[in-house]
Simulated assay, not measured.
Amino acid sequence: MSESLKKTGASPALSDPFARKGFPAWGDWLVLMLILLFSALAGAAVARWCGCAMPETAEGRTLYPETWGRTVFVMYCAQMGLALLLTLLYRRLRRGPHVVARFSVRGWNPLLLLWGVVAMLACGVVLEPLMQLVDFDFLPMPDPGRGGWALMTSVVAAPLFEELLCRGVVLESLRVRSGVLTAWIGSSLFFGVMHLHPAQSLNAFVLGLLFGFLCLQTRSLWPSLLLHAFNNALALLMIWAEFPGANFDGRPMAELTLRELIGNGRLYAAVYAAALLVVAVSGVEMVRRMRRLRAQERKNAAEAAINPAPDTLNSGK
């Protein structure tokens, strides 16, 4: 495990890749959510303690200060840094596996990353009309701020912390406990739930499946990190950019639907059909490869049980 962020060490949980006991059990998920909630409150407290300007409410409107981007950066880093630290400490108390994340560059290639970009964009097209079925006006999206601080939060801090937590700690722990399929789906569900906002959660779950697939296929966090950063950069650009044209009234691109941007019903239908085809083919291929990976994992576990490693034999003396 020379390419792990931390050494894996010798752990009873690691001796059986399909052990049904240990971290994370059902009760641990509640603890993880409480850790995220406590960390969010602590992050806001740290930002106030640092003297960061907070939004104010006037005449039913929320007014954000000019330095809101820096406030978000401080608040987010404090929140997710504490959440990651507390999760690692809790996992250690629960005698979970020691591995945090893998950063190998041997198992992935640019074509795989390019496919990830295409699949991610196609998922966005397919999910857009589904999310419009529910009115989320009562729950406004959080403002990421503007400028370099907002860019640092969305493109650097968020992918790093969230990938370390979801595709690192959670996915690796689930893989050791229950195998790759449970790790793939479970870490994606956790990734969706931790975003809290309903509109973000569905999209985050689907993206989590894509990020987790890349991580498990390549045994590295680099592809999911890069794809996560690209997705956040694109989302931030759409929030900042104002689409030209009288028909759009200078609204940010994030408030416009793809149908509005294209302006032609038939062309939109063709684009949506192509995106749906990409998502369907990609989904089938991901499931097929994950099943193959699970079969290989079970084969390796069976061989390890028949022919244990020398250090395992020595540790039993």
Rank of each mutant, 00 (worst) to 15 (best):
M1Q: 03
L5F: 10
G9I: 07
S11A: 15
A13P: 02
L14H: 03
L14C: 04
D16I: 01
A19T: 10
K21H: 12
G22D: 14
F23S: 11
D28H: 13
V31Q: 06
L32P: 02
M33E: 10
L34F: 04
F38Q: 02
F38V: 12
L41D: 05
A45E: 13
C50N: 02
C52F: 00
C52H: 01
A53G: 01
M54Q: 15
M54G: 05
P55V: 10
T57P: 00
R61Q: 09
P65V: 06
T67L: 03
R70E: 03
R70Q: 06
V74T: 07
A78T: 04
A78S: 14
G81C: 09
L82A: 09
A83H: 02
L84M: 13
G96D: 13
V105H: 04
V105W: 08
G107A: 02
N109R: 13
P110K: 07
L113M: 14
M120H: 07
L121C: 04
E128N: 07
E128K: 07
P129K: 14
P129I: 15
V134Y: 08
V134E: 10
D137R: 05
L139P: 01
P140K: 10
P144C: 06
G145M: 07
G148M: 12
V155F: 09
A157I: 07
A158F: 05
A158V: 14
F161I: 08
E162R: 02
E162S: 02
C166K: 03
R167T: 05
G168N: 09
L171I: 11
E172T: 10
L174C: 07
V180H: 08
W184H: 03
I185T: 03
S188D: 11
L189N: 04
F190S: 11
F191L: 09
G192L: 13
G192P: 03
M194R: 04
H195M: 14
L196Q: 10
P198T: 11
A199N: 13
V206F: 05
L210W: 05
L221M: 14
L227K: 05
H228A: 13
N232M: 10
N232Y: 06
A233R: 03
M238L: 15
M238C: 12
W240Y: 13
W240Q: 12
W240N: 11
E242L: 14
F243S: 08
N247C: 03
G250E: 12
A254N: 09
L258D: 05
G263A: 12
G265D: 15
R266D: 15
Y268W: 14
Y268F: 15
A269K: 03
A275N: 11
L276W: 11
L277P: 01
V278H: 04
G283D: 15
V284M: 14
M286S: 04
M286L: 10
M286W: 01
R291S: 09
R292T: 01
L293D: 05
R294Q: 14
N300F: 00
A301H: 06
A302C: 01
E303Y: 00
A304E: 13
I306S: 03
A309I: 00
D311G: 01
G316D: 05
K317H: 07
K317T: 06
